[in-house]
Design a protein around this nucleic acid. Structure first.
Length: 575
RNA sequence: GGUCCCGUAGCUCAGCAGGAUAGAGCGUCGGAUUCCUAAUCCGAAGGCCACAGGUUCGAAUCCUGUCGGGACCGCCA
């Protein structure tokens, strides 16, 4: 049971009744009210703003209105006290048993504690990573990958039917460059020492391996072909090889996509023609001339009539080109087709995780999706800001040209999946972030991953004790958990479903990471109180009390594991 | 020139579908170790929530403008 939504429902019922019997008359639909934990625990267990929210349309002062509500709220099951405070807050104090019983709920639900159904089975497509198949994933990809994957986990927990998807940009010029670069390495592999990586080709050494594989599979037969023949061969070989590497790296991050969509496939299927045709049928495609961009680096700009999408109809700043001068589709055009494809495969909602450097594309993409769905918010784009890599406060310089970029695989070798995943979620997505190797691998309070892991390991350590293992904890008398520090921990545990719901609604998995840090702090706090005051230790010579406390410890471990699961982090039982 | 993001304690950041006295960690200062993991905990000090207006019972949160930092702005992907 989610205590907050439970009482929210009860109070809503009360207001409905008061409206029905004429005690309250609303002239207007009131804004949604909330039941929340009060900021100050001395105000009680639940604080609600029902009266303040309804006051205006009821034509009453908040406090007068509250007085009506309070009469009925006082009779609700589990409510021991209710009062009106400040400008019109209604504060409820609950029977401690209401909280204590949640421990049974948590243990019974186990991995399902926190699961809700706000998604109502709606189909939602989360597209993330989608790195170009021209090289291995590098460190900069990690954050978007992790945020996307954790968001997908979170939405599943919230009852959405989630598709995890990767869009492969395997059309266009860059994969031809990849093909030529691999061809050079292929010639080298066959002993042609005169073959040199040309200007503009990808110099990365990772392609040496791909060239050798190509030589192994095809021998020297590509050498006798025209470029028009060998290029497609080398291209698809290289793309497949890169995608294998990328999938392997994602696997190390515990990311498993449901689907990889190929841009080339879409173009080949004529999906782009179809999609643009649809827009054209709606009068949204026309021949026009764009103004010169004002960026300053467009010296070679020439006004030219071209095929444009009327994205300004949907809030974009200018209309956008869908065809290039060589008569092929622009990237945007195939992206339009791709998003239509996602919609046609049955997704009600689309989420894209993009790097902050793609911010300028948000409006046009949303415009295109709106053009298809007729709705404004079918596409949600989460921009993920940059990560600065440091080691002991010193920035690690990365340059693609110099070949000194840090691969995702390198980072995983250094810090491991769990640290990387958790740390990437300790900041809001739109904030830039420093990722310091030295800092994230220290085992101290400053390192949040360690701190939460330690709380879990400590809990496990208690449950492992001989005295603990011996005790039958089923049916323990939870009312014995009455110390304020214990109650504070229980309240946190009980509020986990509410946290998941809020995070899911906001599409913000980082909230779970912050919640876990709070939870760990509450647990460590209780633990240390037991150091000072032996009567508060989990294992005591009172069997009934110990049984109750062991359930509390176990529930804490369950919630940490569930939170970790959303973040894709494995809990550690012993450190 | 335009669009988007950011500006909260000395530092790093939460909080933002408006709610009561604005929170946490680090750092500083002062404490706790015969005890289930002290890799931890407790306490103190520290704030014109960038600035100025507006919206209302109420604004860090919403709106407008200003200043400061960042990203982006072509048929690249």
């Amino acid at each position: 049971m989610n205590i907050f939504s439970h009482f929210s429902q009860q109070i809503t019922d009360i207001t409905d009744t008061l409206i029905k019997n004429g005690t309250i008359t609303l002239t207007d639909t009131a804004k949604p009210a909330a039941c929340e934990p009060p900021r100050d625990s001395s105000h009680g267990d639940i604080s609600t703003n029902y009266a303040m929210v309804m006051a205006k349309s009821a034509g009453m002062s908040p406090r007068d209105l509250a007085a009506h509500l309070v009469k009925d709220i006082a009779h609700l099951d589990g409510v021991t006290d209710v009062n009106i405070a400040g400008p019109g807050f209604i504060n409820l104090t609950l029977d401690p048993a209401i909280w204590q019983q949640r421990i049974d709920d948590i243990l019974a639900a186990n991995t399902a504690w926190g699961v809700n159904d706000i998604g109502k089975g709606e189909k939602i497509n989360v597209e993330y990573v989608s790195a170009n198949p021209t090289g291995p994933l590098h460190a900069a990809h990690a954050r978007g990958a992790i945020i996307g994957d954790s968001l997908a986990n979170l939405l599943e927990t919230c009852g959405y039917d989630v598709t995890r998807e990767y869009y492969i940009n395997d059309a266009g010029n860059q994969v031809d460059v990849l093909a030529r670069s691999v061809f050079t390495r292929y010639k080298q592999a066959l002993g042609d020492s005169s073959a040199k990586v040309a200007d503009g080709q990808y110099p990365g050494e990772y392609l040496i391996d791909t060239g050798q594989k190509l030589a192994k599979v095809h021998g020297d037969e590509l050498l006798n072909m025209d470029e028009s023949e060998w290029l497609p061969l080398a291209r698809s070989f290289a793309i497949d090889d890169m995608m294998e590497t990328i999938k392997a790296d994602l696997g190390r991050l515990n990311i498993h996509m449901d689907r990889f969509s190929s841009e080339r496939q879409l173009v080949k299927n004529g999906a782009v023609d179809t999609a643009i045709g649809k827009l054209k049928d709606n009068g949204l495609i026309y021949l026009g001339v764009l103004e010169k961009p004002k960026a300053g680096n467009a010296d070679d700009w020439e006004p030219r009539e071209q095929l444009l999408f009327r994205s300004t109809d949907f809030g974009d700043d200018v209309d956008r080109a869908v065809k290039k001068s060589d008569d092929t589709w622009t990237y945007f055009a195939s992206d339009i087709a791709y998003h239509l494809d996602k919609l046609e495969r049955g997704s009600d909602k689309l989420i894209n995780i993009w790097g902050a450097d793609h911010g300028g594309y948000v409006k046009r993409m949303k415009s295109a999706v709106s053009a298809f769905t007729g709705q404004k918010d079918s596409l949600n784009i989460q921009l993920v800001n940059f990560v600065k890599l440091l080691d002991g406060g010193k920035q690690i310089k990365m340059s693609k040209r110099a070949g000194t970029f840090v691969t995702l695989s390198d980072v995983l070798d250094t810090v491991g999946k769990d640290i990387l995943r958790f740390i990437m979620l300790t900041r809001r997505a739109d904030q830039t972030m420093d990722f310091d190797y030295a800092e994230v691998t220290t085992q101290s309070r400053e390192n949040p991953v360690f701190y939460v892991q330690y709380a879990h390991a400590r809990a496990c350590s208690v449950l492992r004790q001989d005295e603990a293992v011996k005790i039958d904890v089923s049916g323990a008398n939870l009312s014995l958990l009455s110390d304020p520090t214990e109650m504070a921990l229980i309240r946190l545990l009980a509020s986990y479903p509410r946290q998941v719901e809020a995070a899911g609604q906001a599409f913000e998995p980082h909230r779970i990471a912050f919640y876990l840090m709070d939870l760990a702090a509450a647990f460590h706090g209780l633990w240390n109180k037991g150091r000072d005051d032996p009567s508060l230790r989990f294992i005591t010579d009172n069997t009934a009390l110990t049984a109750a406390r062991l359930n509390l410890v176990n529930a804490t471990a369950v919630v940490i594991r569930n939170g970790f699961a959303v973040l894709g982090v494995d809990a550690i039982n012993e450190m």
